[in-house]
């Protein structure tokens, strides 16, 4: 099997695990962990595709750095949102978060 296919299968495993976690988890933190798994799979796929073909390898590494930076920004905002949800509801279970407006 070609090396690139092996790396892409590894990132496919990460994507599948992330999707499964996103559906299965019932707390916001668990879902955030699943999203990080998927973003990692994307990064691995980009780097493998540019390192192992004739494509511009520098561009691939810079693109993955960009993905990592966006993941950090996303995690920051998501965690702040989790803190706000926890203050308002007292928990972060997704099945009970069904209202947007303030409770009267």
């Amino acid at each position: 099997m070609k090396p690139l296919v092996l790396y892409q299968l590894a990132s496919l495993v990460l994507l599948g695990a992330g999707l499964a976690g996103l559906v299965k988890r019932r707390t916001l933190v668990g879902m955030l962990i699943a999203v990080e798994l998927m973003l990692n799979g994307a990064g691995l796929s980009i780097v493998a595709a540019t390192q192992l073909t004739g494509a511009d390898a520098t561009l691939g590494q810079l693109a993955t750095l960009l993905v990592m930076g966006l993941a950090a920004a996303e995690a920051t905002v998501a965690l702040a949102a989790i803190v706000v949800v926890f203050r308002r509801f007292g928990h972060t279970r997704t099945d009970a978060l069904t209202t947007l407006r303030e409770q009267q």
């Binding site: 099997m1 070609k2 090396p3 690139l4 296919v5 892409q8 299968l9 496919l12 994507l15 599948g16 695990a17 999707l19 499964a20 996103l22 559906v23 595709a49 540019t50 390192q51 192992l52 073909t53 004739g54 390898a57 520098t58 590494q61």
Partner: peptide, 27 residues
């Protein structure tokens, strides 16, 4: 949800592998 992308993408990857180098590029 885990099986769907695997079932869709894995056969494509296996049947039509992209030509790839054995030695990764050095940056």
């Amino acid at each position: 949800a885990a099986m769907l992308p695997g079932a869709l993408l894995a056969p494509i990857l296996m049947l039509h592998p992209t030509a790839s180098k054995l030695i990764p590029a050095e940056v």
